[in-house]
Design a protein around this nucleic acid. Structure first.
Lengths: 116, 116
DNA sequence: CACAGACATTGACATCCGTCGATGTCTCGT
DNA sequence: ACGAGACATCGACGGATGTCAATGTCTGTG
């Protein structure tokens, strides 16, 4: 497993100043790039958006597969990427796996990008 | 040339509410993903950071190649990706090409990601 | 006008990534 | 205990991406 898998967003954000404040360190650039890569996919952006606006602010795979128009394994794959990156959390209750937003994760990345 | 090349960040930001406010439209997700893909690379993040913190808030390719540790064609390639995505602007003066940040571009993406 | 230098473009290559079908694992109801 | 269903994992495949060497284009200089 790549090292980056062990560095979710919260750790990235605690490390350094916003991108344009000072020259970013190569290792920090690598971490931030890893977080952004997790977001830089249409299906994953839609998943985050769908989970956030779903009732109860959580959703199971069965809620997401059909509206997304992708196969169940593909949806599970994307969700895993988002969980590993620290943007979503997974809560298995019975047969279902419920995904919800990790509070502050998106804001951390947004803060690193913002110039003001 | 892909259509997305013609949709720099400013257009993406003018289109829709923050990601978690309401379910994002597939086409908007595609546009935002394209912008994020442009940022989701360590070399490109470092380029943005180096340009922003360079004196005069602009830098030419010759300023960037050596500290980045990549070949000149590769640096030119990354800069082109960032210009096409609307994050950097290019100003050719004489033999040199000066790159600088597009004001508000990073903030637009940051605003789309933020939840607050 | 030729030459040197800064940068862009091209072509090639290795790697990464999104996708799916097939299969595995676990839980619940019968 | 068995079967059904929800989800994860695996293996494979095609397309996208980062990188470089080689080459092209343009600008200023001797």
């Amino acid at each position: 497993m790549p090292v980056a898998e062990l560095l979710p967003v919260i750790d990235v954000t605690a490390c350094c100043a916003p991108l344009t404040r000072e020259t970013i360190e190569p290792s920090n650039a690598e971490d931030l790039a890893h977080s952004l890569k997790a977001l830089a996919d249409p299906a994953r952006l839609r998943l985050i958006s769908m989970v956030a606006s779903h009732e109860g602010a959580e959703a199971c795979v069965c809620d997401l597969t059909e509206p997304l128009g992708l196969s169940q394994p593909t949806v599970s794959h994307h969700l895993k990427v988002l969980v590993d990156a620290g943007f979503l959390s997974r809560d298995k209750r019975g047969v279902w796996a419920y995904y919800s937003l990790v509070p502050g994760a998106l804001d951390s990345v947004a803060h690193l990008l913002a110039t003001v």
